[in-house]
Design a protein around this nucleic acid. Structure first.
Lengths: 297, 297
DNA sequence: CCTGCTGCTGCATCAAATGCAGCAGATATC
DNA sequence: GATATCTGCTGCATTTGATGCAGCAGCAGG
């Protein structure tokens, strides 16, 4: 939208930390950019950047302003989506921030199912750890968040939630894979095991459950990638951990899955939500409803 | 703000019902205005006016857009007020829609008291019947509403409320003015009486209380002005009705006031509120706090 | 048919935004 | 301490985009 152009420039300057640098990125001269910002500050009635010897930085007023404009921009997108919808167009864009577990199976299925009915709707999917997903929402970079064990839950309006017990991932020829049903945590940890890094919910649950107990964690590999861990347990006979929604349901795969006994490890929760106070664009709202019924099953 | 200029034009066109007429009012040529609207519709991606043989009218998309922009404008005002506040400026503007009863004594006192401490803050006061006050809020024409017996209360976030029993206004030499304390409704109605028109809360309460009862209303004068009624009861020996907050507290006035017995007429309620979902500018929020404590006393 | 309104458009004009070059001031490097 | 290099900022010429003027077609009411 034309009238939000100045704001785009402001954001760019804030990001670059310098007017000249930002001007280069946008391919205009620094003088033009400089004057636009000066003009804006004048009519806004207050400086929004503090001038430092080596560039500029948003001051408090600027931060407030940027927050306002982000909200405004997403609001406008909502209105446009609503308008498109009332002309029967069923167009729109859904942006979603999610935990890694949703990436391999769940979201691809859900999105393709949705797009089969609404081909005009496009998606962007961002992988975020549980803290970053919430930040994404509050900075209007994503409409929806689908997060396992979110951290603060401020500004997070919950649409749906589902319990997700932690499961052990095993190579099919692993000793623990011979039985079915729940497996005890100390049995898992007796074997070499791979763990996600601390920013992830699964690790958080494991840390909490073992703190001050007789069992303790001693990962042979720590990784920020669940995909890596899923593949790793097939090589060394190690134990990995993941939540069910991140695991293939069919039995033909070469990974065995056993739920960790809830006596040892309480189930975590997967949350679907959006930023408190927002009204979602129609496409996002509809997709959220689909997700909600999918995870509640 | 510069970038909301196009919207101002759109609003103007919607109001005038014709591009040419609006262009005259704004003192630009119709061609310029026409092209601005066309450009806007193009980048917005949808028509916002339907073209009629004798002018234009907002279509559904346009209505949505106007609503959005109004919200956006008031949001921007809030941000500016917040920025002014953090530089210690204590400036701002408070717009308030209120029932007639607040006009003569209550609001002048409250506003002057507030302005004594914050001289930079300006006010606009709109007199609205109880339905119009709520419409004002939802169209972002007022920040606050102070209404006796509001109608729907949708989109109305209550800050504070206070019971207001209906009182009889009498000339000091009126027979009913000889006693103190509550007066029975049938005694009032036995005398010539003046009533507010149906859109007002006091009348609404009286209508409800007499419906299907032995007593019935037979006003000698119906008026939409409480000021008129207050003065009228001093001429003909008639009975008028008003709520306490609209009446002078001191005894030196030439109007006697007696509360109507609550057995006959339940007390109404005065509500202070703002539009649901909004965040008020600092000045409005502070003034609202002052009003809240004033009416709760 | 005519009059008076409407929205719309081609062309000339004007204003505002931009680009270019250069300024002063501050930091870092030698 | 001099130099080099960065910063934001400003005067002047240029270009781009918005505006004004005149005139078009379409529709309603007389």
């Amino acid at each position: 939208m034309r009238h939000l152009e100045t704001f785009r420039l402001i954001e760019e300057v804030a990001r670059a930390g310098s007017i000249r640098k930002a001007a280069e990125d946008i391919n205009i001269t620094s003088s033009a950019l400089n004057r636009r910002i000066q003009r804006f500050e004048e009519e806004f009635g207050s400086q929004i950047f503090e001038r430092l010897p080596h560039g500029v930085r948003l001051n408090t007023a600027g931060e407030l302003l940027v927050q306002h404009y982000r909200a405004q921009r997403s609001e406008l997108a909502r209105v446009q989506s609503q308008v498109a919808d009332l002309s029967g167009a069923r167009r729109g864009h859904v942006s979603i921030a999610c935990s890694q577990a949703l990436i391999p199976y769940f979201l691809p299925e859900q999105i393709s199912a949705y797009r089969a009915e609404h081909p005009g709707v496009t998606f962007s999917v961002r992988v975020r750890d549980r803290a970053a997903a919430e930040r994404d929402l509050s900075q209007f970079e994503s409409d929806l968040a689908l997060v396992f064990e979110p951290v603060h839950m401020v500004d997070f309006e919950v649409i749906a939630s589902a319990p997700q017990p932690v499961c052990a991932m095993l190579a099919t020829d692993h000793p623990l894979a011979r039985k079915d049903g729940p497996v005890r945590l100390h049995d898992c940890l007796a074997y070499p095991h791979v763990l996600p890094t601390r920013e992830y919910g699964v690790r958080h649950l494991l840390d909490s459950a073992t703190r001050g107990r007789s069992v303790s964690l001693g990962p042979v590999v720590e990784s920020s990638s669940f995909e890596f861990m899923r593949h790793y347990v097939m090589h060394e006979q190690a134990v990995g951990f993941q939540i069910p929604i991140g695991l293939k349901r069919d039995l033909s795969s070469n990974i065995a899955v056993r739920e960790v006994s809830r006596r040892d490890l309480p189930a975590g929760t997967l949350f679907l939500g959006y930023m408190k106070g927002r009204t979602l664009p129609v496409a996002s709202a509809r997709f959220a409803m689909q997700l909600a019924s999918a995870i509640s099953v």
